[in-house]
Design a binder for these strands. Structure first.
Lengths: 224, 224
DNA sequence: CCCGCCTGTAACCGATTTATAACCGCGTCG
DNA sequence: CGACGCGGTTATAAATCGGTTACAGGCGGG
């Protein structure tokens, strides 16, 4: 599990990195906003921790940029008199925030909670009912059928639905998780992605038994 | 989702309550510390917002007392920007802390983040009496009847009424909650929305048992 | 270098949802 | 009485939504 940390306070950066690596994470350090963006692109972390006040590019600028094409969980850090930026960050799609000073223990607990919520805690085969998803080699198996190969996007969609199996997942959440916050005109893409995924996993794609529509709300995975 | 708010500043109390109820929360107001404790026991809120400076029992005292036997998320408010208050609040088990003055938007963002963190973001089906509303997939169930699918607007209407079950909700508040501020010539829309919702949830839509009219005032949800 | 698969852009259809606009009945009040 | 406000009902138009297909650019593998 790889975590990107961006903070211009060298001491705090080291402390966080140390805390996380002690907990079994692989910590990647960035000293400013532009470094964070570069490292995000090259390292592909599973979670990002961003300080709001940074030279180069501010935390919420970085947050916005990352969210433009990724649904990776983001945690913001702030000193205590920047309410406006904090709210802005949350509205830009940050998932949680922490006000300084905080204890390493708190940070760790929050990060774990965040990963749990994003369903990224275990990278092994994810299963529920008749649906078994193998994240590593991009395949699903429905009941006793032969395993089907999935594309990157199909995998992300099914993963999100599987983590919330039996419950409806809103279209917005799916969009963010799969593509990140873009023009949000992307309902079109979701329609087609669902369509293609149904072709692969449904017996009769015109009468979905597994990947069902909750009209006006989103989609849900039915497991008996 | 029920929120207990305690503040001796009557204006601020009303403002917070209004903000939260527009966001779909049920706000319970307390003007001082001892009232807050009494209401906490009787109402069993899902979240508590406490001003620190209050007559009766201070926010600290209330926080400590609640924490003695409950893990409900607590947010503290203070006029003073004192490090001392912050530390003490956190030591007493408060989960977050907000310094006055703050914008309603800020408060809302923080409260939502707090609920998300506590894992209470989706309180599951919102229920009262025979009416069970599932916000996630836009459905209601009346008694043992089959679940009915609702549209976005019907959902918002029913949610507002359900959160204030048994109480009359003014037409203006409903309009703002459902459509936001528009030309307020939209009483027409509300009429029809109520009509359509009744068709879906009332046994005999011409003699409403659940969604009743309070002539000249608004509507209310009757739960026996 | 070509071919295949994956992804994004676009358009169309039918159904549902929402907005606009009437008409009806009932009570109040000048 | 008759105009008015208010709520309920119906009809109809406009917007949106979900499903589907077609197609082109990109990218990687043979």
């Amino acid at each position: 599990m790889k975590v990107l940390i961006a903070d211009d306070d060298r001491d705090l950066l080291d402390l966080i990195a140390f805390t996380l690596s002690q907990a079994g994470f692989l910590a990647v350090k960035a000293a400013d906003g532009s470094a964070a963006l570069a490292l995000f692109a090259s390292e592909g972390p599973d979670l990002v921790v961003l300080d709001i006040n940074m030279p180069g590019a501010s935390g919420f600028k970085v947050c916005e940029t990352i969210r433009a094409h990724s649904g990776v969980p983001i945690m913001m850090l702030t000193a205590r008199n920047e309410e406006e930026d904090l709210v802005r960050s949350l509205e830009l799609g940050a998932d949680d925030y922490l006000t300084k000073p905080f204890s390493p223990r708190t940070l760790l607990a929050r990060i774990k909670a965040l990963l749990r919520r994003a369903g990224m805690e275990n990278s092994g085969p994810l299963a529920s009912g008749r649906v078994r998803l193998n994240v590593e080699d991009h395949t699903v198996q429905i009941g006793t059928e032969a395993a089907v190969r999935l594309t990157k996007l199909e995998l992300r969609l099914l993963q999100m639905l599987l983590v919330n199996a039996g419950r409806t997942v809103g279209s917005d959440r799916l969009l963010v998780h799969i593509w990140g916050h873009r023009n949000s005109g992307d309902r079109q893409l979701l329609k087609q992605l669902v369509h293609r995924l149904r072709q692969k996993i449904e017996k009769d794609p015109s009468l979905p038994q597994i990947l069902q529509t909750a009209t006006g709300a989103g989609y849900k995975l039915v497991v008996e």
